[in-house]
Design a protein around this nucleic acid. Sequence first.
RNA 1: GGUGAGGUGGCUGAGUGGUCGAAAGCAACGCUUUGCUAAAGCGUCGUAGUCCAAAAGGCUACCGAGGGUUCGAAUCCCUCCCUCACCGCCA
Length: 423
Amino acid sequence: MLDIRLIREQPDFVKERLATRGGDDAAKIDEVLRVDVERRRAETQLQQFNADRKRLSKEIGGKRSRGESSEELEAQVRAIGEEIARVTSDAAAGEEQQKNLLLGIPNLPHPQAPIGRTAAENPVVRSWGEQPQFAGEVLDHVSLGAKLQLFDLERAAKLSGSGFICFTGAGARLERALIQFMLDLHTQEHGYTEMSPPFLVRRDCMIGTTQLPKFEEDMYGLEENQLFLAPTAEVPVTNFHREEILAASELPKKFVAYTPCFRREAGSAGRETRGIIRVHQFDKVELVKITTPESSFEELEALTADAERVLQLLGLYYRVIELCTGDVTFGSAKTYDIEAWSPGQNAYLEVSSCSNFMDFQARRMNLRCKDAEGKNRFCHTLNGSGLALPRVFAALIESGQQPDGSVRLPEVLHRYFGAAEIR
RNA sequence: GGUGAGGUGGCUGAGUGGUCGAAAGCAACGCUUUGCUAAAGCGUCGUAGUCCAAAAGGCUACCGAGGGUUCGAAUCCCUCCCUCACCGCCA
């Protein structure tokens, strides 16, 4: 959520920044400004009426205690009460309207963000490793998975429909090994605190981290009790401190959490849906940081490096791209995507998206920090996958495939998996 | 799921219709005293919105949330949420 004060004071600047996203947000800014004027007018009126009522009511109290008549005053206050009822609903409606508008306006992209309209314009920041070369035929993860019986998509469909995975045997064990490896790496070497949060979250949390109200069609919800299946651990973990005031001295907070992630993927049927790379439920290890406003951008670099380290230790070839203004997600000011190379698809797979939301989420969840002078400010929040499992799984088995059909595993996984290869 | 007790400022805790945004204590911060520490004394010490060109200052709202009664609600009534205790059920 953008600061209404910023919009009020520098509307042209805000429109300019939003225009780089390519959407039509200028009209929303004008609308929110119009509502803001009305809202404040109603609020000022309401305050005046309230002040009058308060003053007169006290006079009534005084008169009564002295045994004097107060009927005239009471009639006056009753009349004010009617005005108050009227203006209150105006003010409440204005506030509601303003809030709804603000919730629908995306974050301002970082001033240095690359300008562009589509993913094609995202610059590559760096790449790591060597693209693996194979002498013979290269199998993709679907063929490899079938051969080695690592997962079963047909039978998973019997359970839950298309878009679900059932890992089996060595596949299930590899999935577990990867989770364990990532959690240990981030907690033991990168200083993150492990969390194991609820997978069902309240509506307010989904609003806090910007999944709602805009993307409701992509979420699984449980109508009866108004809970949602978290589409990422970002939701429960970032909201952990919602509505709190943290001491700046205890920041940054660094959390890592493994959770399954639930996504309806409405509208993406047929797109990159082969195998296990786009599914309705997948495992992910997520990194979350809560920082002071000053340090968030350097923390973003560190967080991205922490995520990259997973791929480096797994020995997977990857590249990092920065999202251009037209591709950066709704709440983010700056995002790096990490893409692992998939030999089977001859393409890069997005395995992590590391974003700095600045105060955009914090404002929605009223998450603040108190600095040394005792001043309260909104925190900055960041997150990034560290990493998304199925795609890493796919890249890993495709990259490690050997001519005899077996899969060689990187050394870091040996003790977690219990063997050096899958055959 | 049932019954009972509760939810007040960073914490403890008073306050059952009228200058209560809220006593008191603790914690915190500042100053004074002091050779240092300790102790003592004094002072400051919630959040947000709004008015004003801005500062100073004013005003309003907030005592779990939302409604209601009343001239006036932290206080009375209703609904909901949460916490605790006991009972039932259960991985």
